[in-house]
Design a protein around this nucleic acid. Sequence first.
DNA 1: CTGTTAGCGCGTTCAG
DNA 2: CTGAACGCGCTAACAG
Lengths: 329, 329
Amino acid sequence: MNTIWDVAKKAGVAISTVSKVLNNYPYVSEETKRKVREAIHELNYIPNTIAASLSSKQTARTALLLNLNAGTQVIDEITLQYIHGALNAAMEVNMEIITIFLSMIKHMTPEEITRYLQSQGITGIIICGMTKEDRYLRELVETGSFKSVLVDVPLINDNTSTVWVDNAEAQYEVAKKTITENKCESVLYLEGKDNGYVTDERLKGMKRLAEELNLKMLVRNGDFSELKARELTFKYAKRKDAVVAASDLMAIGAMNALIEMDIFRPVCGFDGITLMGYVGKQMNTVRQDFYNIASTAVWELKRLFEGGKGQNVYTKYELVKLYYKDVIV
Amino acid sequence: MNTIWDVAKKAGVAISTVSKVLNNYPYVSEETKRKVREAIHELNYIPNTIAASLSSKQTARTALLLNLNAGTQVIDEITLQYIHGALNAAMEVNMEIITIFLSMIKHMTPEEITRYLQSQGITGIIICGMTKEDRYLRELVETGSFKSVLVDVPLINDNTSTVWVDNAEAQYEVAKKTITENKCESVLYLEGKDNGYVTDERLKGMKRLAEELNLKMLVRNGDFSELKARELTFKYAKRKDAVVAASDLMAIGAMNALIEMDIFRPVCGFDGITLMGYVGKQMNTVRQDFYNIASTAVWELKRLFEGGKGQNVYTKYELVKLYYKDVIV
DNA sequence: CTGTTAGCGCGTTCAG
DNA sequence: CTGAACGCGCTAACAG
């Protein structure tokens, strides 16, 4: 491996000069820049990121914290999209990402986590799938030891940004479409886990719709669980005209229950996961681009690293129905 | 953050002594060890891994290389299991893992990849989902610049190990079960991509079975694709008694085709993915524990780091049918 | 605009 | 058995 030393020698300059052109510092003549770049190119030199972070103390090493609670297919798909999006964006902006599952650090106190991360030279974190129960994470973020970007969690301060879709609006839209298409007058709403930050938002959107359309609405907590949604559907769907679920998995559970009960009710979901193409015939859902969300989070973190203040970033969504032909490859 | 200096001061020794007890070097008196450990504990000291790797040049920083070609649910599940298993095991053995998708490095030459990884201080790699087409990866491994563990690829040398299940045997068993249960005399075998290392093995197992049971076997290349399997089934299944697919996804494609054709043929798959519970009623499959495979790979890599020679490590599998009740949560 | 120098935190000889 | 001293590869003042 060539070091910065070799480059300096080859270009006939001091290592600090090389470092400067490497990091785009001002006050370097075009001529020297050229010489240095040439030497770098000829030697196929790649800076040692380890040494760089040791010395600079401010490199963009980032931890991607992921929740992997329920071992369902859905979680898999979403989580992997997060990882993929984050890693690719990280490569673009030249940032190192360490993937960490919350289960691996759940037993630690915020202080322990902080030390653990800092010992790895991590200065920024991106959190996906955080719940209200993850108080230690919240503390971690609030101490401000790291630049943070949270996905789907409304927590913003100088060095914390949030990336999420407008859940209230999305829930409103998808439900409205489903309900008006079928001229329903009453609805069973299967809301998510109380510990989920998006749960309240989605419920809010749903309430607005119920009021607007003058719907009779029954709200029940499905915990984002397919099984629970199934049970609730068995129990309540008969007396309602439609089932709106706050997640695709719950929508699938509801639909399967309806099939077993042998009655038809329109169902809609939220997420837009592939599984819908296999089982959810004709179900409206809100499709989120999780790859893009993670990617956005990385760019937002980069902004924070560069001195930007925390902010709220909305990402897009679309209303879709997934068909088998869309997912078969 | 406390440094090794603070610990040394508190324990009343030199930093080198602290370093020695940290790395379990001999020739340190029990008494000093005790003092140092106490200081470490009181200060909640965690060694800075960055500085450590800079200085030692032999830390176990590892790259987990993953293939993410087809954007299917199946790939998602398997890949995520790999990641999860690897990261958890890595934490146990105190090893740092950087996750990298092959798509991110596919445009680089082996030399470029080598430099890229080395610039990150990486000395070991684990590769999942490598195909025969990934020649640059093979070169990378064969240069011996890294300690490597390959999953499902038969390539072994002093610093390269392989982790995989006995694909031939597994394919033999699952097919045998399916075929004898249904007293079949002819079979359509949907093999995987030619570029897959497991494809030949599975075919080998299948051939042995065909010979043993004196089956009429038609082999067609399904490319691990659901769509292709579907088409092949439409074309050939009618004249056969059973369909054996070299992957779950193909099995699902075959089954859907059979349903549309409105004929019954026993089908079996390979992998044991969750999706089978949703769509694959009563299908035999070979269930692999991808979490465990990745975990095993990490431990194997650790062995290589410690001077062990490359070897072949077999992991287990089981024959199962997945039902909806097994996957609903 | 360029070069010198002092660390970053730790591992590792090598005297003592 | 212990500690002083050097260096890993690089960044960041600080002189010049």
